[in-house]
Design a protein around this nucleic acid. Structure first.
Lengths: 140, 140
DNA sequence: CAGCATCCAGGGGGATACTG
DNA sequence: CAGTATCCCCCTGGATGCTG
C-alpha cells in the first residue's frame, strides 16, 4: 500500500526518529549541523558555487583545518558537492546539493536571527549581570 | 513618532552586524545558539514552562552540569526565564521569554530537519564511504 | 591553490560527591 | 528537588610546516 503522498512519507520518516534520544541518528545529525562553522559555510554557499580560498576569506577566522574538515563532513553527508577542475593550479568549487539547499533556509534564519537580535541579547546580558553581580547592600 | 517602521528598524539592526566577521558580537551569539544543547532545550520549552528535572529527562543524555550551564547562559541572554517557587522541596520552572519565543521557530526547524532528512543523509554517507574507501579495485 | 600531517593547549563536558 | 563543587579526560580546534 504505497499510496502515500510525499508529505506523508516525510512525516513518517520524521516520526521514526527522535532527536531527544541520545542514541538516535537524528541526534547525531542535529549535533553535526549545529556545529560552529556549518551555518556560516552553508550561508556562504547560498548564492552559488564558491572556491576554497573564497570561502576561507568569507568565513573570517576559520582555520584551514576546520574549513577542510567541515567541508568534508558536509560533503559526506550529501549537503555539499565538491568539484575539482584539474587546471594549474588546481581549482576546487564547493556548492550546495539539492539536499543542502533544503537546509539553507534554516541556517539562513539562524544567522539572520543572530544579527537581528544581538542588541536585545546584549541588553539582557547587561541586565542580568547588573542584577547578579554587586549584590552588596540590600538591593531591590 | 518614529520615522522608521519596526521592520525598517530590524533591518537596520541586522545590517549593522555581520556574523561572518570573527569579532562581531553577532558571531559570538551565533556560536552560542549553535551550541550542542541549545536547540534541544528550547524545543523542549515549546509547549510551556518545564521543571529542571523534567528537562533533564526530556533531553536524554545531558549531564547536570551542561543542563544547568546551558540554562544559565540562555537566561543571561534573555531567552529563557527562571522562576523559583519556595516550596519544600524547591520547585524551579523554566520558560521561554518573548525573545526566546522568536528563536523557537528556527530551532524547531533545525530539529525537524534533522529528523526528516536523517535517512537521506545516511544514504549519502554510505555512498561517500563506498566511493572513497577500498579504492584498490572497483567494487567489493 | 588547495589541501594534508603533526603537534599541542584549552576548554567542553562527563562522573562523582556534597548541599540548602 | 535543584542545584554547586571538584576532578579530570579527551576532543576540538588553532598553529605550523610540507606537498601535488
Amino acid at each position: 500500500m504505497p499510496t502515500l503522498t510525499a508529505a506523508q512519507r516525510r512525516e513518517q520518516a520524521r516520526a521514526a526518529y527522535n532527536a531527544y534520544l541520545a542514541t538516535c541518528p537524528a541526534r547525531q545529525l542535529l549535533d553535526r549541523i549545529s556545529g560552529k562553522w556549518v551555518s556560516l559555510l552553508l550561508n556562504a554557499l547560498a548564492d552559488g558555487p564558491r572556491r576554497y580560498s573564497d570561502l576561507s576569506r568569507t568565513v573570517a577566522g576559520i582555520s584551514q583545518k576546520m574549513l577542510t574538515q567541515t567541508l568534508r563532513d558536509l560533503e559526506r553527508d550529501g549537503l555539499v558537492s565538491r568539484t575539482v577542475t584539474p587546471s594549474v593550479p588546481v581549482r576546487v568549487d564547493y556548492a550546495l546539493t539539492p539536499l543542502g539547499a533544503t537546509l539553507l533556509p534554516v541556517v539562513q534564519a539562524i544567522k539572520d536571527w543572530a544579527e537581528t537580535h544581538i542588541e536585545e541579547v546584549m541588553r539582557a546580558r547587561d541586565d542580568y549581570d547588573a542584577r547578579h553581580s554587586a549584590p552588596t547592600e540590600h538591593r531591590a
